[in-house]
Design a protein around this nucleic acid. Structure first.
Ligand SMILES: [Mn+2]
Ligand SMILES: [Mn+2]
Ligand SMILES: [Zn+2]
Ligand SMILES: [Zn+2]
Lengths: 140, 140
DNA sequence: TTACAAATCGTATTTGTTACTAACTAGTAA
DNA sequence: TTACTAGTTAGTAACAAATACGATTTGTAA
């Protein structure tokens, strides 16, 4: 979910989180990324502007974003967690070979998913919809 | 997926896996369980009949079952992996509080899911459909 | 029966994540 | 501006689940 610095700052302050340059940099990167990055990946990006940033701060900031409901953590076998800033109902298309993750989102899917929920008769507090595939590049 | 010992033995032999008493016990337990058990949970069950069984053997047998396509591993934040022997298209209804997992499966859901796949235009090799809820007991 | 590849058990190691702590800093209110 | 304080950071230690390793045992095909 992309937003302006001012919007982000309001959200953090309203929830009692202090605004630091590290947080702003991490949030801006993660919330605008479509790559479902790992903590290591986020760190390697942020360290360019904040050379002393620690991996721990990345994890703590992810915990904050999860607490704020702005990010979802996805765990996998054999690889580290990916962080998804798309919190709307959508499908993650995940390549089994190269681990690339692409979102698929549409009104049609939201409608079909809501019908599935209706059939199950549950009140969801979240969901994770993964489809495992071989992506076009890995199929070759 | 429940099956007879003979069916199971055939599958193992056909794939070049040896048939051992430990494997039979683990497979029978896991393939008939609806609980999405953890490795520890499986171990605590099998150790009753095989007192020397190691946790390592549980993990190795799970790898085998995953290789055979009979089991799917589900990783989570803050808790250990759960192993799901229901490999058909279904939704895992997962309580955020007590971590109980219940399958929901129906012709309607398979139909709706196939329409989602059609819209995405992908050839899935698998999927993981999680809905996070508060179960009836935890809601009280 | 024998030979050998594979499986098991027990343990060591790895790895991703979490916990801890001293130093630092954002926010607040004189 | 200044001083205070609770929250944040960086660095590192600790943790736990999962994986790798190696000696011994076992299943299976000759
Ligand atoms: Mn996504
Ligand atoms: Mn299931
Ligand atoms: Zn790929
Ligand atoms: Zn519950």
């Amino acid at each position: 979910m992309t937003m302006t610095d001012d919007q982000l700052i309001s959200i953090l302050r309203d929830s009692g989180y202090k605004v630091t340059p590290q947080r702003l940099a991490i949030c801006n990167y993660v919330l605008s990324s479509k790559e479902h990055p790992t903590a290591e990946h986020i760190h390697s990006e942020i360290v360019k502007k904040h050379p002393a940033i620690s991996l721990n701060t990345i994890y703590q900031t992810m915990d904050m974003l999860i607490d704020l409901g702005l990010v979802q953590e996805m765990r996998f076998s054999g690889s580290s967690s990916r962080f998804d800033s798309n919190t709307s109902v959508h499908v993650n298309i995940i390549c089994q070979k190269c681990s690339k993750i692409q979102d698929f989102e549409s009104e049609g899917i939201r409608e079909l998913w809501s019908r599935i929920l209706a059939e199950m008769n549950v009140e969801p507090v979240g969901q994770r919809l993964d489809v495992y595939v071989l992506c076009d590049e890995c199929k070759r």
